[in-house]
Amino acid sequence: MTDTLLHHLDEGAPTAPPLLLGPSLGTSTALWDGVAPELATSHRVIRWDLPGHGGSSPGLIGPGATVDDLARLVLALADALGIERFAYAGVSIGGAVGLHLAVHHPERLTSLAVICSSAHFGDGARWRERAASVRGEGLAPLVETADSRWFTPGFSVPALLEDHRTADPGAYAACCDALAAFDIRDRLPEVAVPTLLIAGREDPATPPEHLREIADAVPGAQLTELPGASHLAPAERPAAVRAALRGHLTGDPASGMAVRRAVLGDAHVDRAQSRTTGFTARFQDFISRYAWGEVWTDTTLSRRERSMITLTALVAHGHLDELAMHVRAARRNGLAPEEIGAVLLQSAVYCGVPAANSAFAVAQRVLAEEDGPGGADS
């Protein structure tokens, strides 16, 4: 990577709809670790670092910088990656970049999500004072108070604190200059792309009223407030941010991923997502959109009924690894152990005794793990 482009991570299928994710001041692409991998099953996700943060060169920005300067760097990155139009989501200063793009370069955006951010970050003098302090004393004093500014009491992400500690002071100060000069309030009615605002209810830096101000001014904007979240909501409440973004990006809040998690459990889906590669990303997207987003969400059959059908089909084809997963799903969907046994007995008649024998062995093991040796706790 050359020093002329922002450092970035590119995840998901190259042919999937592009989504750019912008960071908060003092953080890096790691801010999105709990969110980006899942979004990459349906989108080409590009996370970028601010100048002097993470892997981006500090020389990309200088004193007196503006949000326009940062937006131009983002557009240069998109151009270098061959991306003409993209969805965008950003936190704090990353959200400010998104608002600037929506007003000044609307032809480049397909949608916008502004997270824990503002159309005006308060008294510019306060930001200029912070910039001067960082240029003179470095970032150590700010790192000491980062947890209280970023998270609710008792929560912390050491990797993000390390990002803050190792950021380039000059580039950080230049970003403070950009925040000091930023005020796009009078242009908000011009935002014409579908817009989502996400606020952390306990955010001291950009309180919910900042996001409400944007929501009230942007035509058709939607606002989501997250309880138990402070300024870095993607790190503190990643599941809630994932769900909000997926609903915004797909237009379907009850997305297939939500159903997949409800039936199979977060642990299983997280393992599957962590193993996703560029080669398998489209298949994971297919599963989430078609199997879980269209078939399992059809209300013609209940989830209990779908579990019984799925168990039978897996027995018939001898897919025992999948059977174990769906025995757990059947319990989650409300089937008692004796009902699962009845399904397997029915399968013995129509699919064959050897297949059912293997299925009973798998089911007995799973039920013992789930419910104890007796497997009878429904």
Rank of each mutant, 00 (worst) to 15 (best):
D3K: 14
L21A: 12
G26I: 09
G34T: 13
A36D: 08
E38M: 14
T41Q: 10
L50S: 11
G52K: 13
H53Q: 12
S57E: 06
S57M: 05
G59F: 02
P63R: 15
D68T: 13
V74N: 00
A78S: 01
G82R: 11
Y88N: 08
A96R: 10
P106L: 03
S111W: 05
D123H: 01
R126Q: 01
R126I: 04
G138K: 10
D147S: 04
D147L: 00
L161K: 10
D168L: 10
C175D: 03
A178R: 05
F182N: 08
D183S: 09
R187C: 07
P207L: 14
E213Y: 12
A215S: 15
D216S: 11
E225L: 03
L226Q: 08
L226E: 11
P238H: 09
A244K: 06
M257N: 00
A258M: 00
A258L: 00
R261Y: 00
L264T: 00
R271S: 06
T276Y: 03
T277C: 07
F283M: 14
D285G: 15
V295F: 09
T300H: 13
S302F: 06
M308F: 06
T310A: 12
L311V: 10
H317Q: 07
L323W: 01
A324T: 07
H326A: 02
V327N: 08
A329F: 08
A330K: 02
E339S: 06
G341C: 01
A355C: 13
F360T: 07
V362D: 01
E369T: 14
G374R: 15
